[in-house]
């Protein structure tokens, strides 16, 4: 990367692109910001220290007390999918919104028409073949053990997405085998399922997403399975979406640009 600075300089002259190292002009602004940040740091340090050292509140006792009713043994999973499941539902909704916004900003690409990157070499291709099945296996393991040990839908979904990203980077265009409506459906599946199940419970006289105590574990595992698939597909779509064909000017350095 020793040439990056030269590239930056050249770019500055030719296209007005901002060099990476550029700082906002005005030394006074930077000094003021630095002093302000230092003052803020001291104030925040005092306040945060006071909270951490002296405030002995917290929800640990309540969470541990009701853990038996939650249907899972891992307290974090119990909070995520039982005690505060509305948070998780809305979070999955945020992911759907982000995917929609990312693709709405593209002028000519749709979810399934983004082109393949250039093919990787033999080593990358073989490594992909070895790693992707392991990642999928690891995702399934994390999902399964999330009910009683660290792990769960979010981590498993992230591993799924990572497998998809590696496939993408190795130059394979997995999207050509997937129907666009199918991928859209998978991304929105968890949001829709949680809303539907929540409303179903409400018609049975319970609160939104309040599971029947006897089958809470089963419901949580089903929702986690759906959430894993949706989160994985959503995070993957975010990467595909920010990895489109060049907008505007065509790439000019593709001849040696093997770093994608």
């Amino acid at each position: 990367m020793s040439t990056t600075r030269n590239q930056a300089k050249a770019a500055e002259m030719a296209t007005d692109s901002t060099p990476w190292a550029a700082v906002r002009s005005g030394r006074s602004l930077r000094v003021t910001t630095a002093v302000g940040a230092a003052v803020l740091a001291s104030v925040l340090a005092v306040v945060a220290f006071d909270v951490v050292m002296n405030d002995k509140g917290g929800l640990t006792p309540q969470a541990m007390e009701h853990l038996d009713e939650s249907g899972v043994e891992n307290p974090v999973t119990a909070v995520l999918l039982n005690f505060r499941s509305v948070d998780t539902w809305l979070e999955v909704g945020v992911l759907v919104l982000a995917v929609m916004s990312v693709f709405a900003l593209h002028r000519k690409n749709s979810l399934t028409s983004s082109p393949p990157v250039q093919r990787g070499g033999y080593v990358l291709s073989r490594m992909t073949g070895a790693f992707v099945p392991l990642l999928v296996l690891g995702a399934g393991y994390l999902l399964w053990r999330g009910t009683h040990a660290p792990g769960g839908a979010f981590q498993a979904g992230a591993l799924f997405a990572a497998a998809g990203v590696i496939v993408r980077l190795s130059g394979r265009n997995a999207l050509q085998y997937i129907q666009g409506w199918l991928l859209r459906g998978v991304i929105i599946l968890a949001f829709a399922c949680m809303a539907g199940i929540g409303i179903l419970f409400m018609t049975a006289g319970r609160n939104f997403l309040e599971y029947p105590a006897a089958h809470a574990g089963t419901w949580i595992f089903l929702l986690e399975l759906v959430a894993t698939i949706s989160i994985g597909a959503g995070l993957w779509a975010l990467f595909i979406g920010t990895h489109p064909m060049p907008l505007g000017r065509p790439p000019s350095r593709t001849a040696n640009g093997t770093d994608t």
Binding site: N6, A8, T15, H243, G248, S252
Partner: peptide, 17 residues
Amino acid sequence: EAVGFLERQWPEAPEHS
């Protein structure tokens, strides 16, 4: 990805000097 993309958009880099 974003960094690579934005750098590829820049014009021809000068020689590796």
